[in-house]
């Protein structure tokens, strides 16, 4: 007889942990966490433990997942993700998302970007359910533990397939920065179309990026680095930023060290290849 995976076996520790966290998440995911709401509960919230959120490493971006996404950017309710930036009186968001971390994994980049860009909303998009749950739980804990200084109110995560549904979330020219940190390499030739940077997808990224916006890429796979650089250089709407620009940009140094994947590479003393591109002005339509 086949045994159930641990995550589905009601006797397992992982199962119990997941159920507990899920209840907590359901309760807190969309509420405004502030000093008052936290004061009623006592004690600090533990940060979630990654080992309980394990999931297969790869998710096929072509497949037809059970996903939730708005029918159009106008129908997206951002107030639930960033309640502190929702104006009760006008019923409108005071800010819109301008920074996106595509395939954010466990969310380390957002956690470090949050205090650097207190006035900008940052969104992580991640296709794997358990990993997204982890990031949600992490943000709930961070918001609760930093309620006094209203920390981490400007970051959140969405489960979604960024290769298919980005335009459902963002208007034309809405984003100023897009991060692609340690994307899945899809080594085999015939899997290259599954890569998150291709010349056809870049046109969609260029659509959601404003003119002057920046695409950040970092990887430890040299071949993938060359692939991304080649495709971005070939694309008429992107232009490479210089090494000296990279050295001065604070996001580049955060991106090198903040993400979980980046830390793993650091421990193994692997190389990290960085390339940043500016979204140039849209040329005159012929």
């Amino acid at each position: 007889m086949k045994t159930k995976p641990l995550s589905q076996d009601p006797g397992s520790k992982r199962y119990a942990y997941r159920v507990n966290k899920e209840e907590n998440r359901k309760e807190l995911k969309h509420v405004k966490i502030d000093e008052n709401s936290v004061a009623q509960k006592n004690g600090k919230l533990d940060l979630p433990k990654k080992k309980f959120y394990r999931q297969r490493a790869h998710s096929n971006p072509f497949s037809d997942h059970q996903l939730d996404y708005p029918a159009s950017p106008d129908e997206m309710d951002w107030s639930k993700l960033y309640p502190h930036f929702y104006d009760q009186e006008t019923g409108k968001m005071a800010k819109q998302v301008t920074i996106a971390d595509i395939g954010c994994g466990f969310g380390g980049l957002m956690v470090d970007l949050s205090p650097e860009f207190p006035d900008e909303l940052i969104l992580g998009m991640e296709i794997r359910v358990q990993v997204t749950n982890y990031v949600e739980d992490r943000i709930i804990a961070l918001r609760s533990n930093h309620a006094k200084e209203e920390g981490y109110q400007n970051i959140n995560v969405l489960r979604g397939n960024a290769m298919k549904f980005l335009p459902n979330f963002f208007h034309k020219g809405q984003l100023s920065k897009m991060f692609f940190c340690f994307p899945d390499p899809h080594f085999k030739q015939r899997k290259h179309k599954a890569r998150i940077i291709t010349n056809t997808l870049l046109s969609e990224y260029a659509y959601v990026l404003k003119e002057g916006g920046v695409v950040y890429t970092i990887t430890d796979v040299e071949d993938l680095h060359h692939w991304m650089v080649k495709h971005l250089e070939e694309h008429p709407l992107f232009e490479r930023l210089s090494e000296s620009w990279e050295n001065e940009d604070k996001c580049v140094s955060i991106m090198r060290n903040a993400t979980e994947e980046g830390k793993k590479v650091e421990r193994k003393r692997g190389d990290k290849f960085v390339a940043c591109f500016r979204r140039v002005q849209t040329p005159e339509i012929i």
Partner: peptide, 9 residues
């Protein structure tokens, strides 16, 4: 022919 420019969805 500037297909790299998406007009809209």
């Amino acid at each position: 022919p500037q297909c790299f420019i998406v007009d809209k969805w």
